[in-house]
Simulated scan of single mutants.
Amino acid sequence: MQARIRGMDLPLVLLHAFPLDSRMWDGVRERLDPITPDQRAQGEPDLAAAARRVLDHLDERGIERAVVGGCSMGGYVAMALLRQAPERLAGLVLADTRAGADTEEARANRLAVAERAEAEGVGEWLAGTVPALLAPTSPEEVSSRVRGWVLDQDPADVAWAQRAMAARPDSTELLRAARVPALVVVGEHDGLTPPRQARELADLLRGELVQLPGVGHLAPVEAPDAFADAVLDWRQRLAL
Rank of each mutant, 00 (worst) to 15 (best):
A17L: 01
F18C: 02
F18T: 12
P19Q: 08
L20W: 04
L20N: 02
L20R: 01
D21V: 06
S22G: 15
S22K: 00
S22W: 03
S22T: 10
M24C: 12
M24K: 02
M24E: 12
W25S: 02
W25C: 04
D26Q: 15
V28Y: 05
R29D: 04
R29Q: 12
E30K: 08
L32A: 05
L32C: 05
L32S: 03
D33A: 14
I35F: 13
I35D: 10
T36E: 08
T36C: 15
T36H: 03
T36Q: 02
P37S: 11
P37R: 09
P37N: 10
D38P: 11
D38Y: 09
Q39M: 15
Q39C: 13
Q39G: 07
Q39F: 03
Q39Y: 00
R40Q: 14
R40K: 15
A41W: 09
A41V: 14
Q42W: 03
G43E: 10
E44I: 08
E44H: 13
E44F: 05
E44N: 07
P45M: 06
P45K: 06
D46E: 11
L47Q: 05
A48K: 10
A48Q: 12
A48G: 14
A48T: 15
A49E: 07
A50F: 01
A50Y: 00
A51C: 07
A51G: 14
A51F: 00
R53V: 04
R53A: 13
D56M: 02
D56P: 00
L58P: 13
L58W: 07
L58Y: 11
L58T: 11
L58E: 09
L58N: 10
D59M: 00
D59T: 09
D59N: 08
D59S: 09
D59E: 14
E60I: 00
R61P: 05
G62N: 08
G62R: 06
G62V: 09
G62S: 09
G62Q: 08
I63Q: 09
I63S: 11
E64V: 03
E64G: 08
R65M: 11
R65N: 12
R65C: 10
V67A: 07
